[in-house]
Design a protein around this nucleic acid. Structure first.
Lengths: 235, 235
DNA sequence: GGAATAGTGTCTTTCAGACACTATCTG
DNA sequence: CAGATAGTGTCTGAAAGACACTATTCC
């Protein structure tokens, strides 16, 4: 078997969350400061010897973000392979998107930055390397799974579990709006989601949220544990 | 910057074509014999120093299949990363699918094998490494782009240009049936495709195929050069 | 005319999109 | 009661799926 020069292989993660999911939802991205080339970048790291991509993702989350325990399946975006993407060495990035609920990111080192409609950083700054491209791909990816305007496609109320259960249809709709970046009709949204939700009951009655004003909203749970889209691509 | 052991990185290609597209279409896959581990496998090769994935795909096509010139964009399936997928060394595979019309594969070294409905080889044999998984992913990928039973999704008459122009609606439907593996209604198929086709005219009249029997069918061309799905994922 | 293939009219069902209405809470 | 929020009835338009019919050719 021939031998060839081997590229460095890293995993870069676009970690997305929705802040204030139950009150005033906003999509955010985890970024961190780096020193080696100074600047802001996505968390990432090299694949260790004979490790899988999934193991490397877990490793980056633990070492760079202090996260351990069960994790949602990272979603492959694509391989970033411009030989000049890192000026120091030949490095491929196997870029992934990962969604986490806000409560898992409270003590994370780094910042949770808002995004523009096209996936840029809302403050107008740029990330190191080609990480801006990775973020744009991650935003497109998460929107595709939350986008509800399609038929014959699996609908899931909250594929990435951004919102804690139980929730009202209003809260769920606000989360969807924060992800897809546009407003949705409450009536059509409710009709679409209800087949995939189950009402929370309490003593035979439908449990209701205690609103400050107005009619209390019914509380719901997801019917399914996870969206098929959370599974690894092609697996 | 730290240094880490680096994996070998290969590109493996599931090259698909439709044989006899205009008469009796059948979806086929290119496989080749290997010696190093003896067996049947997909064409593939290592990424050369500071080459991109796209360059490596072109390199594999030229060296392994004798193909050069303009090529359709390969579609990333996923990264196959089981550390035991190649027993000899630690090798990642960046697996791609690529579709080519039959006429570009006439002199290709290797075999054009038919597939089962689930992406296995029709003769029941297995490919080396995890290449059976790659083939299943490639079949799912091409079917997704030919699948016509969806709304709000781009329809393209023949995204991968399996069928030479001009063609009849019957020929086009047979190609779709060969790809998706099920029969389609001719009336609904025609209604769906016509907005994306333009009739071939000859002296002001609609050109027609000279059938052996029955009413001659009108000839059509694609309206668009290529399907958006042919573009690289996330690009 | 008969066989064969091409092509269309149209009915039904489904569902997104939209509007307007009703229901139930607080103060 | 008014104000606010939750939730539903229903109309319209678009398109899939299906059936049956018409059209045009060769023999």
């Amino acid at each position: 078997m021939e031998t060839f020069p081997r590229p460095g292989v890293t995993v870069d993660l676009a970690v997305l969350t929705v802040l204030d999911a139950s009150t005033d939802p906003e999509l955010r991205l985890v970024v961190q400061q780096r020193e080696d080339p100074p600047g802001t970048a996505l968390p990432g790291g090299f694949i260790r010897e004979r490790a899988t991509v999934a193991e490397t993702v877990a490793d980056v989350l633990r070492r760079k973000l202090g996260l351990s325990g069960p994790l949602p399946t990272p979603r492959l975006l694509r391989v970033f392979d411009d030989p000049r993407r890192d000026t120091r060495s030949w490095v491929l990035s196997v870029a992934h998107a990962l969604s986490l609920p806000e409560d898992r990111l409270v003590d994370v080192p780094g910042r949770l930055v808002p995004l523009t409609a096209t996936g840029g950083l809302a403050d107008g700054t740029s990330l190191l390397f080609d990480h801006d491209e990775i973020v744009a791909a991650a935003l497109a990816d998460v929107r595709e799974r939350y986008e509800i305007r399609r038929r014959y496609v699996d609908v899931h109320p909250d594929p990435d579990h951004f919102l804690a259960e139980p929730f009202t249809l209003h809260q769920l709709r606000r989360v969807h709006e924060a992800v897809v970046g546009e407003e949705l009709h409450k009536d059509n949204f409710a009709r679409r989601m209800k087949p995939h939700l189950t009402p929370v009951t309490e003593g035979g009655e439908v449990a209701r949220a205690s609103n400050l004003r107005g009619r209390p909203a019914a509380l719901w749970r997801r019917l399914y544990p996870a969206h098929p889209g959370l599974a690894r691509r092609g697996a």
